[in-house]
Design a binder for these strands. Structure first.
Length: 662
DNA sequence: ATAGGGTTAG
């Protein structure tokens, strides 16, 4: 059929087996031989488009070819449009698919992708695979569009389903899937996959590095990772380009690294890249944390002399520098300038000034800016409320904070995690239980998951209200979600739970701290042992003592052993003695007495008593006369003969140890 | 013949 499309005049040329003809076969994934064959046919058909394959130069024939060729091109173009517009994709493909080349199908694929026509995207790609009309570019685009439609998992599945190794290592395909992961916030997955790809033979290029670097901007601890990537890039003899510089500058800015940002900025200039407004903006932003207005002003001058005009973002960022630096007169002046330029129509510059004032302790002045915004009817998305509510909370003005939170709810019907946390904080501090519960229900309705801050606010509040079990449950939730509460909060909750006799909950809080990655305060071990003794959770106490004896004071160890001898599991008595002794604790005579009393009460444990008596002398202990008499008095229960033997043996052994040590 | 980045607020 291809022949009929191209016209009979070209048959000989097309089927003439010249070596160059093979060169025109595009790269095809060797994953399926079927794909290869079909590709070969279509490639042969297509090669007619390339005039270099038409043999010796012959002007006349070339023109002729071109003419015929453009006819087929037009037909194909028409078919592309028809497929794109058809209401039944599969039937259109059945009709027209065979005359379309892979690149035509790829164009259709991109067309569907750009219009988010996901269903057709899936269908078309499937058809292309089944008919052996897909290549590396098809995968690249397909993965990109599947990922763009927020289905990074699906995109990853597609990538993982690729069998052929060289396709899997293709840098375009790798970059495409890595970009999907980064954009959907799966940064860790992207870096792990990147490492795997390198191991499997990927040779990354600058695009690969800029893709991963982009992920470092939004992620915490992104800075060291970014440096590692830059190092890796240099080790691979690649050069940083303007895009890479843009990304690393943004990473520096969001990690408060102004010196490093400055260094990269100068380096890029030195290498002949002209910074654009984004590069300037990132560096300016890096200066804002330190409020370094002198550097910021110089940078603006530099920017102007490079012929760039400071835009709204640049000027707003400059305002941020002034406000963070506490230069409120300069900030106000710049805000006026922004107003006259029409750059202060939304709340952002006001927010920057307000936040700067509030953090400098000038709450009243911050509130004035807030009120000024209302007077000027500045558009607000709720940020200014959030800033003022936090400011009031920080300043201890909980009633004001609460009122503003209510005002937020009355004014806006839009919530996100930050405003919910801010409101929660205000309600908790003001003791508005109803509003707290209402806010939590709202959060649940909106399916906004609580974060570290939410949990902390709630736990603190429940503790303050003496609702310790609720605080405990909240902490358990927090822990299960993978957040580690700060130690002070754990420690205070642990003590409070101990006081209300919820000792096993207290122990559970202790374990949350114990098995977190952070080092914990040594005094907590002793604290929990005390609580566990109170709760008669002696087996748990034993575990803590065993693991942390060196942090536990002798009186508490003594209290533990005493309690254990009286009411702990009798089978563990000897173990406890040995362990505590092994930890360097000198066991008092009254403790042995207590243990022996337990054994006398339970004659079936006489073997354990004998073991203890035999263990003692070797470790510097012997029974005193009272205990000895006690044993002898009860020796009928234990076996007279045996007891007499063991006691005399103990005496002999003890004497010999004393003699040896002399 | 397909892949990449960057700016401001809670």
């Amino acid at each position: 059929m291809e022949i009929s499309v191209l016209g009979p005049g070209l048959q000989t040329v097309l089927f003439h087996q010249s070596p160059t003809c093979f060169l025109s076969i595009p790269y095809v994934s060797p994953s399926s031989t079927r794909s290869r064959n079909t590709q070969l046919t279509s490639a042969t058909t297509l090669s007619g488009e390339d005039h270099t394959f038409y043999g010796p130069p012959n002007k006349k024939s070339t023109i002729k070819v071109q003419k015929r060729h453009s006819k087929s091109y037009k037909e194909r173009q028409a078919a592309v449009v028809e497929v794109q517009q058809s209401s039944d994709l599969n039937s259109a493909l059945a009709r027209l698919g065979k005359m379309l080349k892979v690149q035509d199908l790829n164009a259709i694929l991109r067309h569907f992708g750009k219009l988010n026509r996901i269903q057709e995207l899936y269908q078309l790609f499937q058809w292309m695979q089944e008919n052996g009309k897909s290549n590396v570019s098809s995968y690249t685009s397909y993965i990109k569009f599947v990922g763009k439609n927020l289905d990074a998992v699906k995109a990853l599945e597609i990538y993982n389903s690729i069998q052929d190794e060289s396709t899997k290592n293709n840098v375009y395909i790798c970059n495409s899937i890595l970009n999907c992961l980064v954009r959907s916030g799966k940064f860790d997955t992207s870096t792990k996959l990147f490492d795997q790809m390198k191991q499997d033979g990927l040779i990354p290029d600058v695009v690969t590095y800029s893709t991963i670097l982009a992920g470092c901007i939004k992620v915490k601890h992104g800075y060291p990772k970014a440096l590692e990537l830059i190092q890796d890039l240099e080790n691979n003899r690649l050069h940083m380009d303007s895009v890479i510089y843009g990304a690393i500058l943004a990473v520096c800015a969001s990690n408060n690294k102004w010196e490093e940002a400055e260094r990269y900025f100068n380096q890029m200039k030195k290498e002949g890249h002209s910074p654009n407004v984004y590069h300037y903006s990132s560096l300016l932003n890096a200066y804002s944390v330190g409020g370094n207005y002198k550097k910021a002003d110089d940078l603006i001058q530099d920017m102007k002399s490079a012929g760039l005009v400071p835009n709204k973002v640049i000027l707003t960022t400059l305002l941020k520098v002034y406000a963070r630096g506490g230069f409120f007169d300069k900030s106000r002046e710049l805000l006026n300038e922004l107003e006259s330029l029409g750059y202060a129509e939304d709340e952002m510059p006001y927010c920057l000034l307000m936040d700067g004032l509030a953090k400098a302790g000038q709450i009243h002045e911050a509130k004035q800016v807030f009120d000024e915004m209302r007077e000027k009817c500045i558009k607000s998305g709720g940020y200014s409320h959030s800033i003022m509510i936090s400011a009031f909370c920080r300043d201890g003005q909980f009633q004001e904070a609460k009122k503003l939170a209510w005002n937020f709810e009355a004014t806006f019907d839009k919530y996100d995690l930050v405003i919910l946390n801010t409101m929660l904080c205000a309600y908790c501090r003001a003791g508005e239980m109803d509003s707290v519960m209402k806010t939590l229900r709202k959060m649940d309705e909106l399916a906004i998951s609580p974060d570290y801050n939410t949990f902390h606010i709630l736990i603190r509040y429940f503790c303050k209200e003496k609702m310790y079990l609720l605080a405990y449950q909240t902490m358990e939730d927090m822990h299960n979600k993978g957040h580690q509460p700060v130690e002070e909060l754990c420690s205070s909750l642990m003590s409070s739970l101990g006081k209300i006799r919820a000792q096993s909950e207290a122990f559970s809080v202790y374990n949350m701290m114990r098995y977190s990655k952070r080092p914990m305060c040594k005094a907590l071990h002793e604290k929990i042992v005390y609580i566990l003794i109170e709760g008669r959770l002696l087996k748990d106490a034993y575990v803590v003592v065993k693991d942390n004896a060196k942090f536990i004071s002798p009186p508490v160890i003594k209290k533990f052993v005493t309690t254990f001898m009286k009411s702990g599991n009798i089978n563990l008595i000897n173990d406890i003695m040995k362990t505590v002794h092994g930890c360097g604790y000198k066991i008092d005579q009254d403790l042995f007495c207590l243990a022996i009393l337990r054994y006398i009460e339970q004659p079936d444990k006489k073997d354990l008593l004998l073991q203890l008596l035999l263990w003692m002398p070797g470790h510097g202990y012997t029974v005193d006369s009272t205990t000895r008499n006690l044993i002898l008095k009860n020796s009928h229960l234990l076996g007279r003969q045996l007891i007499a033997e063991v006691l005399s043996k103990q005496q002999m052994m003890f004497r010999s140890t004393i003699n040896t040590s002399r």
